[in-house]
Design a protein around this nucleic acid. Structure first.
Lengths: 210, 210
DNA sequence: TAGATTGTTAATCGATTAACAATC
DNA sequence: TAGATTGTTAATCGATTAACAATC
């Protein structure tokens, strides 16, 4: 049985996180082959680890050449489901929500922002890129119309849980949470927390030691 | 010897990442005590893990009550160096850079954005919040004047490495990299990568399996 | 006191790394 | 062929968890 037949593909969490990085990097470069050694150097890890990571994918390298990059990109794309297009919506048209709505890199990941919502009457109707800001009363319609399964939460922490509840009620299956609050959701709902400020704590910790 | 005397405080990486989350959460809530069990429930982990994590800090809990929150916040603040103010600069006044420049949550983390730079003549001189966008020729002056050690990179991937080199040349000690490229830097320079789009790959992977 | 909750040791689990045979 | 690089097994390392004694 080939690994292709095993579904879901299991990869350990640390491996999965590294595969994401390899993917982002490999999509950018325009070469035929890359060795585990070269890739490892890029990310300050050991080449053995790169090879081990790739054993979870249905791909093998060539001795003396390395791994075929287009093949790697394709296999990784399958793992991440980037070839299946998903529509997504953003709730919260503040600085961060607006920046995400205008972000150009989503296409490569197979996602598209179809609407942005806010509850501030002053923002509703205004434009963020090509999207006009909608009131929350439009949520249900948009979700049904575009078969949206993913919602991004970009609201202040006080309202994050409330918005999460609403999204779930309206049929959203996965929440990408940019607020710094841990959300309470039913087990069937996927939550991915993206705390964009936590990195500064690592930096300050290291700097403080110097 | 108390743990306070050991410097640098060593914490395993996974523990460190969890401590950041506890910190963000604990700063928000207004209670006296919290038990390892309550905290664990919030983050879907085991209470033993929370207690183990806290053993790395110079703090103990009280049987039957739990951990004193203000004390936790203080100890964690020390670990992350949030009580020492650091000035930081942003390079790249696009959507994301501008959003970060206007971000209100930095103060709590003991950092302040003192300047934002761009090389686009159309952007230079325009305002992002209260800051006017500066040309890169001002970098050196600003870094010296404000004793800046941390620089945020928010430029397109093509120029990320170039900007990193420039920042390092001008004396920056730590780079918070919001571009999706792995940067090549000398060993003495701290790099924290904050790929804000990688979360979507996790979500799509899980959704694809359903 | 009894009960709840901490703190710590030891066992388990899982990921990384070293070593090396296989292969182009 | 010799040499470079992969792929895999086994050893090591480190983190999580279970168990339970200590304590308020």
């Amino acid at each position: 049985m080939s690994k292709k037949d095993k579904w879901p593909i299991y990869v350990p969490k640390p491996t999965f996180e590294r595969l994401k990085k390899y993917y982002a990097y490999l999509m950018q470069i325009d070469e035929d082959y890359i060795s585990s050694d070269e890739l490892a150097k890029k990310f300050n890890i050991k080449p053995e680890q790169v090879r081990k990571d790739f054993t979870y994918l249905d791909i093998t390298g060539k001795p003396k050449k390395g791994y075929h990059i287009p093949l790697l990109v394709e296999e990784l794309g399958k793992l991440f489901g980037t070839r299946v297009l998903e529509n997504l919506i953003i709730v919260g048209a503040g600085n961060l929500g607006s920046a995400l709505a205008k972000y150009m890199g989503f296409e490569k990941m197979g996602v598209k922002v179809v609407a942005i919502f806010d509850n501030d009457p002053k923002k509703i109707g205004s434009f963020v890129g090509e999207l006009s800001v909608l009131p929350l009363s439009f949520l249900e319609r948009v979700i049904k119309r575009f078969k949206v399964r993913i919602g991004i939460i970009c609201v202040p922490e006080e309202s994050a849980q409330e918005v999460a509840n609403l999204l779930i009620k309206k049929g959203i299956k996965a929440i990408w949470n940019f607020s710094p609050v841990p959300l309470k959701v039913p087990e069937t709902i996927i939550v991915e927390n993206q705390d964009i400020t936590s990195g500064i704590l690592t930096i300050k910790h290291i700097l403080a030691k110097k």
